[in-house]
């Protein structure tokens, strides 16, 4: 710093340590609890020395909570959302920035309007939509009285019932969360900063639009993609409300929701050691992703919200 302030420096580090300790405390304490026996964990207060039951508890939590299946589900959901969101919004932004066509502005405006409507504010209608993804077509069919038209034309009475449910499926977990204005917006902003000369040169060399996208735009976007991968993976893995609504089959539940079954309720044995062990296992994957890709993560977080 600018001048020497030993006393203030001391307090700086002391408070910093305190801050880190406050932030880290829940996890440290859970980690200690996860190594205890049931007897120790229900002592008041619980001993602060770690026990040796970690692997026993882990095995118990793993089998009781069916964590293997659920973590796999979470992984599939998170990866699906990540890949889908980035793919869809990247080609969407490419279309908006590099082409001139009639609906360009309308397309951009309609995507931009959804910028801040999280799934939480439209849960019921989105759920109904997922329960029958073809319901808009059905509605159009009904409004136009195509039943009547068809029977008039062909002389047969028919009843059309379009029904395709996304409940309890990976498609249902992933698809509704893929729509993202933020990613499209981010890629748009980034594409606008790409030098014009690159596109001109590519055109001069006779590259097709998709060739330009593959050979030039995509490699240039790698850092942005890496940053978004971290953010979106964490987002997808930690979803709560949506998977809660559309999965009823325990085999399709995601890990974050499945943990609910491990928490001891009022009449149960207070098996917090097992519950917290499961909790730690479930929180590990996204935490590792953030820690190992920290640089991309910080970049992504800050750029995304700009």
């Amino acid at each position: 710093m600018v001048e020497k302030t030993p006393l203030l420096d001391f307090f700086t580090y002391a408070f910093l340590m305190l801050g880190i300790l406050i932030v880290g405390f829940p996890i440290i304490y859970s980690l200690i609890a996860a190594t205890q026996t049931l007897e120790d964990v229900s002592k008041i207060p619980m001993p602060f020395i770690p026990g040796n039951q970690f692997f026993v508890n882990m095995k118990e939590a793993w089998t009781r909570g069916d964590l293997g299946t659920q973590i796999l589900n979470s992984f599939i959901m998170a990866s699906g959302i990540t890949v889908g969101k980035i793919g869809v919004s990247m080609i969407g932004a490419f279309s908006i920035v590099y082409f001139d066509y009639r609906f360009r502005k309308i397309a951009f405006a309609s995507v931009f309007c959804t910028l801040m409507l999280p799934v939480e504010v439209r849960i019921l209608p989105t759920y109904e939509m997922a329960a029958n993804i073809l319901s808009p077509l059905q509605a159009i069919w009904n409004v136009l009285h195509l039943d009547g038209l068809w029977s008039w034309v062909s002389g047969h009475d028919i009843v059309v019932n379009l029904n395709w449910s996304l409940l309890d499926s990976y498609t249902g977990l992933i698809l509704p969360l893929i729509a993202s204005a933020t990613c499209t917006f981010l890629f748009r902003q980034f594409f606008l900063t790409v030098p014009e000369e690159l596109c001109e040169a590519a055109k001069l060399d006779g590259a097709s639009p998709m060739m330009f996208f593959r050979k030039i735009l995509f490699p240039l976007s790698k850092t942005n993609i890496a940053a978004l991968v971290v953010i979106e993976f964490v987002y997808g893995y930690n979803q709560y409300l949506w998977p809660l609504l559309i999965t009823t089959n325990p085999k399709m539940t995601t890990a974050v929701i499945g943990l609910q079954n491990l928490i001891p309720q009022a009449d149960d044995l207070p098996e917090w050691n097992v519950a917290l062990c499961g909790t730690l296992l479930v929180l590990l994957p996204p935490v590792l992703v953030v820690l190992f890709m920290q640089r991309w993560f910080v970049k992504g977080l800050i750029e995304k919200e700009k």
Partner: peptide, 30 residues
């Protein structure tokens, strides 16, 4: 839009289609 852009009849619609489809079905319709 970029100063230099591509001209194509169907490609831009094709590229924006997935985004519009998902936005319409899961944002606007609901």
């Amino acid at each position: 839009i970029k100063r230099s852009f591509f001209k194509s009849k169907y490609l831009p619609y094709l590229l924006i289609f997935p985004q519009m489809l998902v936005t319409l079905t899961f944002f606007y319709w609901p």
